[in-house]
């Protein structure tokens, strides 16, 4: 798993590559949660994430909570069909803003 953070036009773009399971989820949490400061704008690009377990759901919940508390905006990009399915059956999907591409996410944030 690799994680990169780029900031352009006051938007923090996090790019994750690789599977998110219990061996890496806490690293992802620790790197992204601190980005959700007051009124922050965060896009998480998961185009290159093919797999995510419940450990990743926990990570998403922590990020969502911090973003809500700090009125930060959060958009997820490039969620695979399999991960969308996991988020849907666990009741996560409706609570996240999801965009098909990075460009469209930049347009709505």
């Amino acid at each position: 798993m690799e994680l990169k953070i780029n900031t352009t036009d006051k938007i923090q773009i996090v790019t994750i590559e690789g599977d998110i399971d219990s061996s890496v989820a806490s690293v992802v949490t620790d790197k992204i949660v601190p980005l959700a400061t007051a009124k922050a704008k965060i896009i998480i690009d998961m185009t290159e994430v093919a797999y995510m377990s419940s450990a990743g759901l926990r990570t998403l919940l922590s990020i969502h909570r911090q973003a809500t508390n700090n009125e930060a905006q959060l958009i997820l990009v490039g969620i695979s069909e399999d991960i969308k399915d996991t988020m849907s059956v666990t009741g996560f999907l409706n609570f996240f803003t999801i965009s098909e591409s990075l460009e469209s996410a930049k347009g709505i944030i």
Binding site: S53, R58, G91
Partner: peptide
């Protein structure tokens, strides 16, 4: 039960066993 709670109100906990059954 957790699955039907809005995520703002959930505890940070596991959903792994549900995913096993699913």
């Amino acid at each position: 039960k957790t699955i039907n709670i809005p995520i703002e109100e959930r505890k940070i906990g596991g959903l792994g066993i549900f995913l096993v059954f699913d």
